[in-house]
Simulated scan of single mutants.
Amino acid sequence: MSIECARVGGINLAQGVCDLPVPGPVLDGAKQGMDQGRNIYTRFDGLHPLRRAIADKVRRDSGMDVDPEGQIVVSAGATGAFYCACLALLDPGDEVVVFEPYYGYHVVTMRALGIRPVFVPLAQPDWTFTASDLENAVTDRTRALILNTPANPCGKVFTRSELELIADFAESHDLFVFTDEIYEHFLYDGREHVAPATLPGMARRTIAISGFSKVFAITGWRLGYAVCDPEWALPIGHFNDLVYVCAPAPLQMGAAAGLNELGPDYYASVAREHQKKRDLFCAVLCEIGLTPHVPQGAYYTLADISSLPGDTAKARAMHLLETTGVACVPGNAFYEGSQGEHLARFCFAKKMDVLKQACDNLRRLNRG
């Protein structure tokens, strides 16, 4: 869709790129890293200043004490950390429980490694699930569950009670829980992010994955990390060395500076700014008859595009692009079956003037 959007010179609300300015401390830290000679390979699990800063962040945000020398692996983005975790801890033929709608990279990564995703659909409109839904997905090959909270693409923020249900399920079947928490600071309407690893019994079985692409608006820097028990961190680090060698050294210094110098006000402003964008964009979707699922977190909304011409989500998304110049992702990209054919995902993490222009363009549907 990004390629098609460029073809027509449209506004790209398909790709999940945050248009916030990169914070000054992050840029300055990277430049200082270069000036100070941080331009060669790092240790396989990342530079100590960044691992130390991540450990401090985890303690501040969740109260957990993690050892920067043995429980943190810095990798080439959150997707890189997830790939290395799968390589280290899962085998071909293993099965992993995946909530649906899902983030495509999770599923594609596992399938590339011969790992079978088993889907648990979240029930609309509130994206709910039951203990029975989880139990029905288990076989003797089940080894893990993957949890994305706040979730891409539906914006669900899993509650503490839901996470407790997942924790009980994981413990009863002795499963790893891979968590993708990269949108943890994009929370709306007073919601809180509960780190699954903080729940009783979950610290050892949780592989917590996050990164800096979204909150520091540095998607192109490719910086992410995994936090987990030392027994799992070592093999994850070995595969990180094998596949990526290391994440970019001076850019690690930039991320460390951001973690150390940006306080709670920065993260609160990120959430506040994106809630305004969410409210504006969802109001326009309602106005033009593309009813949105208003997200609780992250910076996407799934909208009902069944009123648009076409028999598939892709055809409807292409009609929208050709008619309004606004690109979205067809909803079937997030489902194994046909459940997503009436949906499309829009990313509203754009500069306000760009988002307002997209809204004006979308109103052409009513004028047409």
Score class of each variant (00 low, 15 high):
residue 154 C to T: 14
residue 137 A to I: 06
residue 61 D to V: 14
residue 101 P to A: 03
residue 140 D to A: 08
residue 92 P to Y: 01
residue 73 V to L: 04
residue 62 S to E: 03
residue 82 F to C: 11
residue 138 V to N: 05
residue 71 Q to H: 12
residue 70 G to I: 08
residue 154 C to D: 13
residue 85 A to E: 01
residue 154 C to I: 12
residue 116 R to W: 00
residue 106 H to E: 07
residue 75 S to D: 03
residue 92 P to I: 03
residue 105 Y to A: 09
residue 95 E to H: 01
residue 105 Y to K: 08
residue 69 E to G: 04
residue 121 P to M: 12
residue 154 C to R: 15
residue 54 I to Q: 06
residue 154 C to N: 10
residue 131 A to T: 10
residue 147 L to E: 01
residue 72 I to V: 12
residue 134 L to P: 04
residue 130 T to V: 11
residue 149 T to K: 08
residue 64 M to C: 08
residue 68 P to A: 13
residue 153 P to C: 08
residue 141 R to E: 02
residue 114 G to F: 00
residue 58 V to Q: 05
residue 55 A to Q: 02
residue 68 P to C: 10
residue 130 T to C: 06
residue 96 V to I: 06
residue 128 T to E: 01
residue 92 P to N: 03
residue 74 V to L: 14
residue 55 A to N: 03
residue 81 A to F: 03
residue 62 S to L: 09
residue 87 L to S: 11
residue 59 R to C: 05
residue 136 N to D: 11
residue 74 V to P: 11
residue 139 T to A: 07
residue 105 Y to R: 11
residue 91 D to S: 04
residue 153 P to T: 05
residue 146 I to G: 07
residue 95 E to S: 01
residue 111 R to A: 04
residue 136 N to M: 04
residue 146 I to E: 02
residue 98 V to A: 04
residue 105 Y to F: 13
residue 69 E to A: 13
residue 95 E to D: 02
residue 123 A to W: 10
residue 142 T to Y: 02
residue 60 R to Q: 05
residue 94 D to N: 07
residue 151 A to N: 10
residue 123 A to P: 09
